[in-house]
Amino acid sequence: MSKQARPRIYNKAGERVQVSDKSWYAMQANGDAEQRTIEVFVYGEIGTWGITANQFVQDLRAMDDGVSPVVAAFNSVGGDLFDGLAMHNALSRLGERCTGRIDALAASAASVAVCGAHRVVIASNAMLMIHNPWTYAAGDAESFRKVADVLDQTMEAIIAAYKAKAPDIDEPELRRLVAAETWLTANEAVALGLADEIGDGVKVKACLGQGAVLQRFQHAPAALLAQLDEPTDPEPEPTPDPEPPIPDDPPAPASNAAQLALLISQRCTAAGISNLIEPLLAVTKLESEAVVQASLTQAKAINDLCVAARLPEFSAEYVSAGLDTSTVRARLFDKLVGCGKGFEIDNSLPLADDLPPKVQAKQIDQPSIWSARQAAQTGKRTSLTGATA
């Protein structure tokens, strides 16, 4: 690990399982101007792999009018601790008009974030999980000592965040619970002061959506892990729209293979992902414009993930394999954890386009200028001598 790089703090990593996870993030305002309520849904991982603090704070700032109540609903396994602390502070600054709501699970960094709300309501069958910070590193002994110091400091930040919500909590007991990776029920969370009220229960499996990540933790409840083996409820099939009558002379197709290939080339060049032109041509088979458009959107998202993880060389491979963004996140995470490089992940949002190349002015060649002047002066003196003779 570089001595200059600050370690990033993650959830405890473990063996992953193959499940279909869903995560989403939304912010909306309900009601008219006088009875407006702002709702924030944080359903997914916190940090580079899901919802960044930068995105959360910017969206909240754009929608907040300074007077409307704000409800922040959490269903998250956690993620980057520093992003969680930033969310905690953003909610804390809203004061008494902010309510945190735990719909199913607030684990790790998500438990830190939700405790920033003035009032926390936890569903009767939801859980709140607290544990020690965790990271990975590589380097010499001095590097590991510095990483251990950072973990101790972040541990104090976690304790401070919980005590800001529950100032009367017994600190030695709180530290013991954190060190033991404790999964708190709604009643236990209220008893400790980390939640203020028990709300109506929700179906945990319906909104959990992060099953694969649960196995990173050491003491995840068996009831939650058992849900990974349960079949997913089938979604209702939409009622098909009536097909329009076929005209006598159907119009010609809007695009052909050449036009679709040109579309891929132009869109990739404009987005700064020219290296993905060939993989997209192969994976789409130029089947239709709809397929091409969807693949272009997916390729851009995959490239953004690889760039954020500082592994852009894998973007073409993942696009060629037809992987979705959830699978790419998992593979990139495994590579970062397994490589041992321990570099810092950039939590800033990826750029929409590549930066234009810098044009550097030609540097002045002083020796050449001096030589040219000397040659000119020597020639002038020779000319004057010949004229005098």
Rank of each mutant, 00 (worst) to 15 (best):
A321F: 02
E317P: 06
K165S: 01
K285M: 12
A126D: 02
R175L: 04
I369Y: 09
W49I: 10
K358Y: 08
K12F: 09
D170A: 02
R8Q: 10
A271F: 09
S348V: 02
N303E: 13
D200R: 10
P240Y: 00
F217P: 10
A157H: 09
T239K: 07
D346Q: 05
V190E: 01
D59F: 02
P167W: 00
A316N: 03
V77G: 07
E235K: 13
V147C: 00
A282P: 08
P350K: 02
W134Y: 15
F333G: 08
A321M: 10
R176N: 11
A195D: 04
A389S: 15
D21S: 01
I198C: 05
R381T: 12
P172K: 04
Q377V: 10
F56Y: 09
A195R: 06
C268H: 03
I345M: 08
L262S: 15
S371C: 09
I102P: 08
L260C: 01
L177Y: 04
Y25D: 00
T182Q: 07
E181R: 08
L286W: 03
I273M: 14
A376D: 11
A212W: 03
Q210C: 04
S326V: 14
C306P: 05
G209D: 03
G100L: 00
T325L: 06
A271M: 07
T325I: 11
D149K: 10
R16I: 06
I264W: 06
W370V: 15
A160W: 06
L384H: 10
D83Y: 03
H88G: 01
Q55G: 10
G199T: 03
S348M: 10
